[in-house]
Amino acid sequence: MIVPALIGSLPRPVSLAKKIEQYSIGRLSKEKLEEAYREHTRRAFVKLRNAGIKVITDGLYRWDDIFNPLIRFIDGIEVDGLFKFYENNFFYRAPVVRGELSLRENPIPEWINVALEIKEEVYPEATLKAVLPGPVTLAYHSINEAYESLNELAEAYANVLGELMKELPVKLVELQEPALAAELSRATREKKEDVSPEVAREIIEGLAKIRELWVVTYFGTPRVLPEGVIMNFDLIEGSVPENYSGRIGLGIVNARETKMERRDRLIDRLRPFLRKYGEVYVTPNTLLDFLPESVAWRKLRLLGKLGG
């Protein structure tokens, strides 16, 4: 069985970006901005329903990148300059870790609540995942000035994420963990240290005890395969390791190129996985932020047609 699913973000609509900008310069009230978020989320859920995407996210409309604003709600972190997110013309604000990490009061659970309410209204049969950055990816993309090692930093992030996950009103949490496949791109900066595979696996499996986890990897083939989670593999720039036998998501549609894939070729590509795994989730290979909105939706509609 093929289940079409969304991972991570949808392209932020320009109309929403304009509202956020207006709010940031004091020309729009907080209430009006909130209305805009809800309205855009509603429209996205309707389009996801029409496209036949069965497992959805809130599109990360409230997030600037996969780390922000979460890192603004963690004590011990200062938010620093812009860095390239892997080999993309897409930039994130880097967390600079200056002290011990601890989670502050934050609106993320409430945002998910709002998304759930909208989903119940317009697309009740879909499953909504909450999306968070994974501890390994957070550790690699931080500038660490406080912890003895990257392993310790990753563990500290896992603790913070665990606390947050307990508050989330959903059963399924997606962890954005590209660093399991592509640790830190040299396009971002030089890597000085590693998170050991053992620690990476242990902390993710620890988080999987709090909520069911969907671990999304991209830009390569993951070298760490935690158990008891749904693993999402990037089939465009990576592959599924032979020894993997758990639940599986396949990033089969290229979210970094506008050229449209052919449905029949995608089906051919999926056949061996269907034989081996029975049920597969099909997804874009990475965040849809890298595509123009119109193309991203065209690709989602294509994914939807693979379902069944």
Binding site: K18, E21, N89, E293, S294, V295
Partner: peptide, 14 residues
Amino acid sequence: YGPVRVWGNAYFNK
């Protein structure tokens, strides 16, 4: 095909 976001609310027509 339309704008693509670069960071925050900055876009360009790729």
